[in-house]
Structure formats: structure tokens, C-alpha cells
């Protein structure tokens, strides 16, 4: 091989707003979020998935029995993000957390605004902080916040 020379470089951006059709189950989930409500879906064994899916992830069976849930829940794990990136839900230090909503059996991922890492704790209770404007998207929940 000949000597490696310095190569030309250039920025390259891939940008697109995808339009995702939802189907019946996700449609109900996002419609509920727009109305500042949360719903899950019941599996055959009676447990409730949130976020809901149109099928059972373990068996592939179709699901569709929607269940209303509370917008409060418990943190089952968390990761402290000291330096958020611009795309991320909060532009100050926050936690990504797995949150099991009251009435659900599986946790969903979202952001928790606790102010400081020392206020975060597994098994802490949190409540959804709704966005000012809701459009039918996961970010209709701006983030969760600790419940004292």
C-alpha cells in the first residue's frame, strides 16, 4: 500500500420526517396520550403491557383488550444523563427511567426530571408531567416527576 494521505471530508446530513401509520392498538395508545390519558393492553394471562402492543411479544398472539392506566407509577431502574443531547427530552441533567405505571405489569421508558441525581431512587414514585400541547405522541408526556 502507498502512504496514507490526508483525505477530504465533508459534513453529511440525513434528515426526514417519517409518517408512521399506527394500526388499531398504537392508535388507541397515542389517541389517549393526546387526551392526557394512558392505556395499556391486556395479555392472555391477565397481565397488562404498557406501552401496549398489538401482539404478545412472547407468543405472537394478537392483543386488543385496552386497559386504562394511571399516569403515576414506580421507577424500576434509571440512568443519570448529566449531559443531555439536543434531541433528548430535557435540556438539563435528567434520568432515563423504566417506569411501571399503576395498573400495568411491564415498565415503559421515559425521562424523569428529578433536579439532581441524589433525588433518584429505584422504587421511587413518579407522575407524568404532560406537555402543554399534545399531538398524539410519546412526548405528549413531557417527562415524569417525583411524587413526594
Amino acid at each position: 500500500m502507498s502512504q496514507i494521505e490526508k483525505a477530504l471530508t465533508a459534513p453529511h446530513v440525513i434528515e426526514y420526517t417519517y409518517k408512521r401509520s399506527l394500526g388499531p392498538v398504537l392508535s388507541q395508545f397515542f389517541t389517549a396520550l393526546r387526551e392526557r390519558r394512558v392505556v395499556g393492553v391486556r395479555r392472555k394471562d391477565g397481565t397488562v403491557l404498557c406501552p401496549p402492543k398489538e401482539y404478545d411479544p412472547d407468543t405472537g398472539e394478537s392483543l386488543g383488550d385496552m386497559v386504562p392506566l394511571k399516569d403515576t407509577g414506580v421507577v424500576t431502574s434509571w440512568a443519570w444523563v448529566a449531559k443531555p443531547r439536543p434531541q433528548q427530552p430535557l435540556q438539563k441533567p435528567f434520568a432515563y427511567a423504566l417506569i411501571r405505571l399503576d395498573g400495568a405489569d411491564t415498565p415503559l421508558l421515559h425521562a424523569v426530571d428529578a433536579g439532581s441525581e441524589s433525588r433518584m431512587k429505584t422504587s421511587m414514585r413518579v407522575r407524568a408531567r404532560w406537555a402543554d400541547t399534545t399531538t398524539g405522541a410519546i412526548r405528549d408526556i413531557a417527562c415524569f416527576e417525583p411524587v413526594d
Binding site: 417519517y18 408512521r20 399506527l22 398504537l26 395508545f29 397515542f30 406501552p51 440512568a79 444523563v81 443531547r85 434531541q87 433528548q88 427530552p89 432515563y96 415503559l108 421508558l109 421515559h110 425521562a111 405522541a137 410519546i138 412526548r139
Partner: peptide, 15 residues
């Protein structure tokens, strides 16, 4: 999941 996860942009290290 492009519906409920990607829009929150959790980076690989956070997960």
C-alpha cells in the same frame, strides 16, 4: 421501537 422509544432518543449508553 420507532413509535415509543426512538422519539425519546435514548442513547445506547443510557439503555
Amino acid at each position: 421501537d420507532p413509535y415509543v422509544l426512538t422519539p425519546l432518543w435514548p442513547d445506547a449508553i443510557s439503555l
